[in-house]
């Protein structure tokens, strides 16, 4: 260890080996994987994100939502991610193909969001306005929809303004302590809208060859209690 070059080369060899094994080799193997065509629908997966949703991803990144939320569903046996209804199957590399940057998260202060688009109520287009309204209210102040939430409020994504010619259609329906004073209304700014568009683009539920969706056996245990369900009209506590 007294030879400087040996020490130097040893360190380089060690660091380079891991780089090769953990970065270069996996990159060679799956780094240029293309989108796949889904058997059921014939569509490409993952789909391109609409432009607004892509802008929303930037807001998500900038506000650091990933310090509290993960976007990963683990396979069976790992903390009941599946039973909890966080997704119909585990997530795999394919699901993140379009994420730039990938915001997997490492702590779950709040629930996983990998399938938030479909998880809360039905994903069909009729449910869309209700979902948007839910997320906007939630972002304005989480406790308007979820009692006891510790998620931060994001009032700065909204604008409180005086009602001039009748209430605007996109004003939040706020009650009680959260409602603005009479004559005022709260409307989402562009950032809030695109952020919700991003949330509603988050779904990793298509059946893939390497991660098939396996319908649960009929005698499956009860599904885990979910955070909130719009379909049932509000938060289940």
């Amino acid at each position: 260890m007294n030879s400087t070059p040996l020490l130097f080369l040893g360190i380089l060899a060690g660091l380079a080996a891991s780089w090769w094994g953990m970065v270069v080799a996996p990159k060679l193997q799956i780094g240029s994987a293309p989108t796949v065509v889904l058997k059921e629908t014939g569509q490409h997966y993952p789909p391109t994100r609409p432009g607004v949703a892509q802008q929303g991803a930037e807001v998500y990144r900038s506000l650091g939502c990933n310090t509290c939320h993960s976007q990963i569903v683990r396979p069976e046996g790992y903390g009941h991610d599946l039973l909890r209804g966080w997704g119909p199957r585990r997530t795999v590399a394919q699901d993140y193909l379009r994420d730039q940057p990938i915001m997997l998260g490492s702590v779950r202060v709040g629930p996983d969001l990998a399938n938030i688009a479909t998880r809360m109520g039905s994903g069909d287009s009729n449910a869309q306005p209700a979902m948007v309204a839910y997320h906007l209210k939630h972002l304005y102040h989480p406790r308007t929809v979820m009692e006891g939430s510790v998620m931060p409020a994001y009032p700065f994504l909204f604008e409180k303004r005086r009602i001039v010619e009748g209430p605007s259609p996109d004003a939040l329906k706020l009650e009680g302590a959260y409602a603005p004073e009479a004559g005022y209304e709260v409307v989402p700014k562009e950032e809030a809208r695109v952020l919700v568009a991003y949330l509603l683009s988050l779904k990793s539920s298509a059946s893939l060859v390497e991660a098939p969706v396996i319908p649960p056996p009929t005698n499956a245990p009860v599904k885990a209690a979910n955070t909130a369900s719009i379909a049932t009209g509000g938060p289940s506590r």
């Binding site: 193997q29 799956i30 994987a33 396979p75 069976e76 046996g77 585990r90 795999v92 059946s207 060859v209 390497e210 991660a211 098939p212 396996i214």
Partner: peptide, 16 residues
């Protein structure tokens, strides 16, 4: 590249 937990190898993936 296509084997993820819980599957041990390609042969055990049911949908394959």
């Amino acid at each position: 590249a296509g084997v993820y937990e819980p599957y041990a190898d390609l042969r055990s993936i049911p949908s394959l």
